[in-house]
């Protein structure tokens, strides 16, 4: 445990040097303020401009889902970038043979940042939400958003062998967040093509206002994390 904490603190020092720690701490608040204040302002302007009763307000739930996905995606993305740097600089293989080990490395680089992301989202979502979310919905969105962040980080680390491949995978893996839009814009049963994404079930849960979709979301996310974790344990040398 001590080795894991030290390894995590080492990563914090590394990203503090890059100013990324400051960015990671301020970005969720800035994104939340933009969603809370700018989106309703745009809606007001669009209503005046188009003469319609509502333009983007029916999709406010989607903004809440995206906000719940932003912090975990960002925290885990930063960790994944640090992992890629360490892999390219051959630091990771030295860490594996210390008391930290591969599991400790994964925990310090992905699980602990994900836990911070969960707490950040659970605290900020009630402040910056655009719809009336219940406490259970807030916890559900924070949890599934965190699972998604872990999946993004694991995908980057598992599928890329260097920084450049990592950036290409990052671009692709960030698209998994957009599965949440499927229940809003694609009619049933075609929207179920995206049911392999946890974000799809997040969207479904908020769109249908039903917490039952928490089960498939956690199940899908959990399965993906297990598969990716196994792959990453094999690929990390």
């Amino acid at each position: 445990m001590r080795a894991i904490c030290r390894s995590f603190l080492h990563m914090l020092k590394f990203i503090r040097h890059d100013m990324m720690l400051f960015a990671a701490l301020t970005a969720p608040v800035l994104a939340g303020m933009a969603i809370k204040f700018i989106v309703p302002f745009i809606e007001k302007s669009l209503i005046q401009f188009t003469g319609m009763n509502a333009v983007i307000s029916p999709y406010y739930g989607l903004f809440d889902i995206f906000f719940a996905s932003i912090s975990p995606a960002m925290f885990c993305y930063i960790s994944a970038m640090v992992m890629l740097e360490e892999h390219d600089d051959h630091i990771d293989r030295y860490l594996f043979i210390t008391g930290l080990g591969k599991n400790g490395y994964i925990i310090s680089r992905i699980v602990i940042p994900a836990l911070f992301a969960f707490v950040t989202t659970a605290v900020l979502l009630p402040i910056f939400r655009l719809t009336d979310l219940s406490a259970a919905q807030i916890i559900f969105l924070s949890l599934t958003g965190t699972l998604q962040g872990i999946i993004i980080a694991l995908l980057i680390a598992a599928l890329s062998s260097n920084k450049l491949e990592g950036m290409a995978v990052t671009k692709l893996s960030s698209l998994i967040i957009f599965g949440a839009a499927a229940p809003y814009f694609i009619s049933s049963p075609f929207c179920f093509c995206f049911s392999f994404l946890p974000s799809f079930w997040m969207g479904k849960s908020i769109y249908d206002n039903s917490l039952i979709y928490m089960v498939p979301s956690l199940f899908v996310g959990g399965i993906q994390i297990i598969i990716l974790q196994r792959k990453i344990m094999k690929s990390l040398i």
């Binding site: 890059d18 990324m20 960015a23 970038m81 890629l84 740097e85 990592g166």
Partner: peptide, 11 residues
């Protein structure tokens, strides 16, 4: 010197 620096600088 690092990817995180680059990403931050491009924002």
């Amino acid at each position: 010197k690092s990817l995180n620096q680059f990403i931050l600088a491009t924002v």
